[in-house]
Design a protein around this nucleic acid. Structure first.
Length: 563
RNA sequence: GCGCCCGUAGCUCAGUGGAUAGAGCACUGGUCUCCGGAACCAGGUGCGCAAGUUCGAUUCUUGCCGGGCGCACCA
């Protein structure tokens, strides 16, 4: 149960009733009530628990100044037992102050729902696909991939909690030019390692990992590819290297806490004729033409600046053609919502892709592309330049080794996708108060410690289902109420972070919750001599533990019991 | 030149068209006889600039300035 939503509905209904009563009494004139009636949570605590701007919205049509409209609504408002106070304030807000009892309902609910607390059903079981990282299998994962991995995985978790049926997918670019290039690089390294003098391809992959891969192949198979026909040799080298690389990528991601449901091969689209079928569909819809031996997508017909090549004059389809086929495949799998997470360097591709989806006859609004700004690395206060082509970059494995999975993931999830991220290696690594990861995890460890101490003293977290349930209304300290309020907000926050595709909200929530807990801890002694108060507080503490643990887990972090 | 993202406190960043724009770090001072001081409390600075829409703009529109990234028969 989402308590905030429940209260909102209740208040909206009461406001509507007040409006009708006011109209009947001739105090207020209006044609219709704007929907939905906006109920926000005021920033200022003294402005109550909820506030509505309805009077300001209706002022014009009611031909009355906003404060007057608000006064009329208040006059005819039936407070009931829930609302303690309502007041007209500022330019015409109506502020509602509720009885604390509405917060207490969450206390047993968290215990019952446990790992599920925070879930909602606003996704209504809709199928959503999140495709992320999808790095080239020709190299190692870098910082940008790491950011995508953290964001994508967290988003998938949040969507899942919000009631969607989520599929996490990795698109493997195992076809096209870069594979050709990769083949040449592999071959050059292979021959080199066997003592031959070769010219390394100019646009080749210079990374040490390519050499390592070939060294391992030699260890396994020796020089048996040496005398082979060049075409066949390259094919076999690539085959070996790709499976090794993919395995490595999967392992790196797993160490980063990310597991996929589906690994989707681009090559399979070529092999299964999916690209031809896609082209055919585009042709039927009138978006294909030929020019200078190449096949073009008439993107200008759907508002693009220029047309795009789908099949080169040499007969090989472009990456774009394969990507369109991939998206056709996604929609044919009946996803209600398709989310891609791309690096900002691909932003030029976004509207093209959406228009291609439209040209195929699918609803382009079902495709969302999250553009993730690039990551800059700071070390010792200096920017570390990264270059993939020359092989000079920090890999995901190195990152995990150096700063740890938890810190790395938190740092990536902490920032919104569209902020240019400066990743401060030294800060992420530091085990000090400066590091926000520790602040949040410390709160969890502290909670566990309190519970341990209580346990040792013979005080258990009270049952909530029986008549032994604690007296919730003993929790009246502002710090207790603020903490409760935050806990009550969780389902809303999760739903919002999920539907708005903004996982960074969860990181902030975690920090806020930790902060409220620490404040509560300082102000309210949990293990005390007043039995009823102690039991109520123990329950609040355990609820805090559950919520904090849930949020940490969704972000892919551990919730340590000691640290 | 065209397009996308960003510009908020000294730094890194939040911020649903609303009331007095927030957090962490850094800086200064304070809190603890006790459940974990990796804690709590207090202290002050800021929405790049200019128009427009609106009862109301950090938020929406346009223009300009500054930074990043794109604009291949690469991916």
């Amino acid at each position: 149960m989402n308590f905030v939503e429940k209260i909102r509905k209740q208040l909206q209904k009461s406001i509507e009733e007040a409006l009708h009563k006011a109209q009947k009494a001739g105090d207020l004139n209006f044609e219709n009530i704007p929907t939905p009636i906006n109920l926000e949570v005021p920033r200022e605590k003294q402005h109550g628990d909820f506030a509505t701007n309805i009077a300001m919205i209706m002022a014009k049509s009611a031909r009355m100044n906003p404060r007057m409209v608000a006064e009329k609504i208040v006059q005819h408002f039936d407070k009931g037992s829930l609302i303690q106070d309502l007041q007209v304030a500022g330019p015409g807000f109506i502020n509602f102050t509720l009885d604390h009892s509405w917060l207490y309902e969450v206390l047993p609910a968290v215990q019952e729902q446990d790992a599920k607390y925070g879930a909602s059903d606003i996704g209504a079981g809709k199928k959503v696909q999140v495709e992320f990282v999808s790095a080239n299998p020709t190299g190692l994962l870098h910082m940008g991939n790491a950011r995508g991995a953290a964001l994508g995985d967290t988003l998938a978790n949040l969507l899942n909690m919000a009631g969607y049926e989520v599929t996490k997918e990795f698109y493997i670019n195992d076809a096209g030019n870069q594979i050709e290039n990769f083949a040449k690089s592999l071959e050059a390294r292979y021959l080199e390692l066997l003592g031959q003098e070769v010219l390394f391809p100019e646009e080749g992959y210079h990374g040490q990992d390519v050499i390592d891969t070939m060294a391992r192949l030699i260890e396994k198979d020796g020089d048996k590819y040496l005398q082979m026909d060049r075409e066949l040799r390259r094919e076999l080298l690539v085959k070996y290297a790709l499976q090794e690389k993919l395995k490595g990528i999967a392992t790196s991601l797993e160490n980063f806490g990310v597991q996929y449901d589906i690994w989707f091969s681009e090559q399979s689209l070529h092999d299964e004729g999916a690209i031809e079928k896609t082209l055919e569909q585009l042709r039927q819809n009138g978006y294909i033409y030929e020019n200078e031996g190449a096949l073009w997508f008439k993107a200008t017909a759907v508002g693009e600046e220029k047309d795009e090549v789908l099949v080169r004059s040499n007969g090989i389809p472009t990456y774009f053609a394969a990507d369109i086929a991939y998206h056709k495949n996604k929609f044919d799998r009946q996803f209600d919502w398709v989310i891609n997470i791309w690096g900002a360097d691909h932003h030029g591709h976004v509207s093209r892709m959406k228009n291609a989806v439209k040209a195929l006859g699918y609803d382009q609004d079902k495709l969302d592309i999250i553009l993730m700004q690039l990551v800059r690395l700071l070390k010792g206060g200096e920017i570390v330049r990264m270059s993939k082509r020359t092989g000079q970059y920090i890999t995901l494995d190195e990152l995990v080794e150096e700063v740890g999975k938890d810190a790395a993931r938190f740092f990536f999830v902490m920032r919104s996708a569209d902020s240019h991220l400066d990743f401060d290696l030294d800060l992420a690594k530091s085990q000090s108060a400066e590091n926000p990861v520790y602040y949040v995890q410390y709160a969890h460890a502290r909670i566990c410690s309190i519970l341990r101490t209580a346990q040792e003293a013979g005080y258990k977290v009270p049952e909530t289902k029986t008549e032994q349930a604690p007296k919730y209304n003993l929790l009246t300290h502002p710090a207790e109420l603020a903490l409760l309020r935050k806990i009550v907000d969780l389902p809303d926050e999760v739903a919002r972070a999920a539907t708005a595709m903004e996982p960074h909200r969860m990181a902030r929530y975690a920090q806020d919750l930790a902060s409220l807990f620490h404040s509560f801890y300082t102000n309210c002694r949990v293990i005390n001599d007043e039995e009823e108060l102690r039991r109520a507080r123990l329950l609040l503490v355990d609820d805090s533990r559950i919520v904090l643990r849930n949020v940490l887990n969704w972000m892919g972090l551990t919730a340590p019991e000691r640290m």
